[in-house]
């Protein structure tokens, strides 16, 4: 519990220096929670299944973006467009999740670094498809999506058509009620899921693969399912994130998804082996509060807003680095701790 408390103190001290009114911070935090919670939640199952932090949710984010580009291509907008993109993203996410799961099963014991490199690798393929194949092999109907020479998708896609499609689905108050409700549903689903047979199997696999295998649980398949669910949630999460932002940075929006989601979860007090909805909620809140206040705090404290910006990136990487060090250190300690010689 020490990590979230430290962050809470930093945030409280920082927000004091920003001089931002509470109401502004509150509104900002509600919006940020709504648009980030599902992405962070998507990390929980792989942690429980013993795969560690799934940096490859980048692939889920890609699936979401693919769906959004498709609906933009056919100029389908509004609520229909939103739900259609959710629908389209799902098969992509299932396929990607399956592939990620297969790869991670071949890299047991080093899933985290593998999932990270896998994210980079997939990003290369993604760029290849959207820069070279779109407009040449893959026909694009909506020409405004293409770069001036007719090959490749433009860098920034305007999502005006589905902006706030979910956020304002239930138009009471200025807050994104529907999005928060969906996040709540995902939490409830997760809660329910962990009480099913499959959820129990995932916990068993996460605790001890060998015992799970001997007990007759199909370890590899369980791990793959866990990654698939994670990837699908990430795809949906990315769509919800982008409908709030309103534009896609075609070649950039997905890149930092893994980083920020993982950092959020860890800030909430999760570890490589333990995570739940509580850590996701607390972590997302604290991490994004830090995100909002650090540039202003940097400006007011040190006269330089950039320091605050670099500081929050440092925090993201630092918290991941630190928690990985602590995790590996504890595991090592447990391994070498001397057993008492029994008389």
């Amino acid at each position: 519990m020490i990590v979230p408390i430290i962050f809470l103190i930093i945030c409280i001290a920082g927000s004091f220096f920003t001089g931002l009114p509470f109401s502004f911070l509150f509104d900002e935090m509600v919006i940020r929670l709504a648009r980030n919670l599902i992405l962070v939640t998507s990390l929980i199952l792989p942690v429980i299944t013993g795969l560690g932090l799934n940096f490859a949710i980048t692939l889920g984010a890609m699936a979401g973006q693919i769906a959004l580009i498709i609906i933009t291509n056919y100029s389908i907008g509004g609520t229909t467009g939103f739900f259609l993109s959710i629908l389209i993203s799902t098969p992509f996410a299932i396929l990607f999740g399956y592939l990620v799961g297969r790869v991670l099963n071949k890299a047991k014991g080093k899933e985290m670094i593998t999932s990270m490199v896998l994210g980079f690798f997939a990003n290369g393929i993604y760029q290849f498809v959207f820069l070279l194949l779109c407009g040449t092999l893959i026909p694009v109907k909506n020409e405004s999506l293409l770069l001036s020479n007719g090959v490749g998708i433009i860098n920034t896609i305007d999502l005006a058509n589905i902006k706030y499609a979910l956020d304002r689905l239930i138009p009471v108050t200025k807050y994104p009620i529907a999005t928060l409700l969906v996040s709540l549903l995902v939490f409830l689903f997760l809660h329910f899921f962990l009480k099913t047979k499959l959820g129990q199997d995932m916990r068993a696999v996460g605790h001890d693969m060998e015992i799970a295998r001997v007990s007759g649980i199909n370890v590899d398949k369980t791990r793959i399912i866990s990654v698939i669910i994670s990837t699908v949630l990430a795809a949906w999460g990315q769509i919800i994130f982008l409908q709030n932002i309103g534009t896609i940075n075609t070649y950039g929006s997905h890149e930092q998804v893994g980083l920020f989601a993982v950092a959020s979860l860890l800030v909430g007090g999760a570890t490589v082996e333990r995570a739940s909805w509580k850590e996701a909620l607390i972590g997302t809140f604290l991490f994004h509060l830090l995100f909002v206040i650090s540039p202003l705090a940097g400006q007011n404290l040190l006269g330089n807003a950039q320091i605050g910006e670099y500081f929050r990136v440092f925090v993201a990487y630092g918290v991941i680095g630190l928690s990985l060090v602590l995790h590996a250190w504890e595991k090592n300690k447990a391994r070498t701790r001397l057993r008492e010689i029994k008389e």
């Binding site: 014991g109 080093k110 985290m112 670094i113 990270m116 680095g321 990985l324 060090v325 995790h327 590996a328 250190w329 595991k331 090592n332 300690k333």
Partner: peptide, 9 residues
């Protein structure tokens, strides 16, 4: 102190 996880760490 983090043997086995050098690359990730």
């Amino acid at each position: 102190s983090v043997k086995g996880q050098e690359m990730t760490v």
